[in-house]
């Protein structure tokens, strides 16, 4: 039982060292709203119509960039996460004579990272939390034990 605060302090230090390793320094890009990129096959009747659609999409709320590539026939929108791909598709369908479809790119061949990017994104927070909680519990245990050691000689 007496070794528990020691192990907790050790855990706290290890978590803190891990956090120092994976935490990234502040950059103004961290304050930017998150975006997603969606590609639509729009089957535009001609290049001008496709480019006009991209131009119109640039003024839509939540759309941060838009482009139409005549060679691929793709209208690609970069948009904030509050704009879903389906809601953008319905807006495209109003302006385009042919119904658009969301382009699904084929899975690339080769090895994949076994850890999802979403898990890696929260790792610094988990490590910092682990460090703080371990240290807090260690301090509380230490104070509790110290009280017992101080009070022990006074007891009859």
């Amino acid at each position: 039982m007496r070794k528990l605060p020691f192990f907790l302090v050790l855990t706290s230090l290890l978590c803190f060292a891990g956090w120092l390793r994976v935490a990234t320094p502040y950059s103004p890009s961290q304050d930017l709203p998150l975006i997603s990129i969606t590609a639509f096959e729009i089957h535009a009747p001609n290049v001008v119509a496709g480019q006009a659609l991209a131009q119109a999409a640039r003024s839509w709320t939540g759309v941060t960039a838009a482009t139409y590539n005549a060679n691929s026939g793709l209208l690609v929108l970069s948009h904030t996460l509050d704009q879903s791909a389906s809601s953008l598709k319905s807006r495209i369908d109003i302006l385009n004579p042919h119904p658009a479809s969301i382009k699904v790119f084929p899975e690339p061949a080769g090895a994949k990272c076994p850890v999802p990017a979403s898990a890696l994104a929260v790792l610094p927070g988990i490590l910092l939390g682990c460090s703080a909680v371990s240290l807090l519990i260690a301090i509380m245990l230490f104070i509790s034990n110290a009280k017992r050691w101080i009070m022990a000689p006074l007891q009859p």
Partner: peptide, 18 residues
């Protein structure tokens, strides 16, 4: 953002970013 949209629309390289 515009650059990324251009890349995703570009069939020459968009498979790399799938």
């Amino acid at each position: 953002d515009q650059f990324l949209a251009n890349v995703v629309a570009d069939n020459a390289i968009n498979a790399r970013f799938a």
